[in-house]
């Protein structure tokens, strides 16, 4: 088990976004989180690396309780990559520097090693010729592929994807999904919040359905998509499939 979530709570003031969430995620597992907007999917994902500070409960990552006092969260975040809906590539750095900045700054790699790795990664996602361009000259799909390899350059043990294709033009969704799919085939432990049901069904080991801040139903893709139990899940699927 690489991640364990115990009684996770998150509220913003009086607004309870997450209520009592429990989950265990194994190494090499691919988890898709689905649900309507506002169901707490993204907040749940962002609690895993403490981009949102949980208001209750515990997050265990490789046996360490991240919510405990005195934990150096920066150290653990290095092993939990994140890919955002809005890419969030760094416009003030060239494409290559977007990738090498963190590994070099955090002393995971020398400049040469980071450069070699960046070139290898860029080649893998078809962006090698953009290495010395600035991100603003890239398309949305290219930016998201850059954001993915930027996370990979830290050699994380888990990747968190927060709706990675939601901000993309339709014709660019495929190229990004195929990069993510390739990663998952290499055994990268991944948790992905997504609205792409076909993708979720195809790549996931397990699917989490969230409803009103509760982890309402979990199971294999077959169970969730072909044999849903909860009325809310059936209703949701009938709308999105």
């Amino acid at each position: 088990m690489i991640i364990k979530v115990e009684n996770l709570q998150k509220s913003f003031g009086d607004n309870h976004v997450l209520t009592d969430i429990n989950a265990e995620i194994e190494e090499n597992e691919v988890i898709s989180i689905i649900g309507t907007s506002g169901s707490g999917k993204s907040t749940f994902l962002r609690c895993l690396n403490l981009l949102e500070q949980p208001t209750g409960g515990k997050i265990w990552f490789k046996g360490v309780d991240l919510t405990a006092k005195g934990v150096d969260i920066n150290l653990h975040r290095q092993k939990m990559g994140m890919v955002f809906q809005n890419f969030n590539v760094f416009p003030n750095m060239k494409v290559e520097d977007n990738i090498t900045m963190a590994p070099v700054l955090l002393k995971k790699k020398t400049k040469e090693e980071a450069h070699d790795l960046a070139m290898k990664l860029l080649d893998r996602v078809g962006l090698l010729e953009k290495a010395s361009a600035y991100p603003n000259s890239l398309s949305g799909g290219q930016k998201q592929r850059l954001a993915i390899v930027r996370a990979l350059a830290m050699e994380p043990e888990v990747l968190l994807f927060d709706e990675p294709t939601s901000a993309l033009d339709p014709e660019m969704v495929g190229e990004v999904l195929s990069v993510i799919k390739g990663l998952m085939h290499t055994g990268m432990t991944s948790i992905i919040v997504t609205h792409e049901m076909g993708f979720a069904k195809e790549v996931s080991d397990r699917v989490f359905f969230m409803n009103e801040g509760v982890l309402a139903e979990t199971g294999s893709p077959e169970q969730i998509f072909d044999n849903p139990q909860l009325p809310r899940l059936k209703e949701f699927l009938s709308k999105v499939l």
């Binding site: 690396n49 981009l51 920066n74 290095q78 760094f90 955090l106 954001a147 830290m154 968190l160």
Partner: peptide
């Protein structure tokens, strides 16, 4: 500066000063 920039940097493991 977009908050997403801070989040992306922090998610890579940079501290707030970095």
């Amino acid at each position: 500066v977009d908050k997403g920039q801070t989040e992306a940097a922090r998610s890579l493991g940079l501290n707030s000063v970095q």
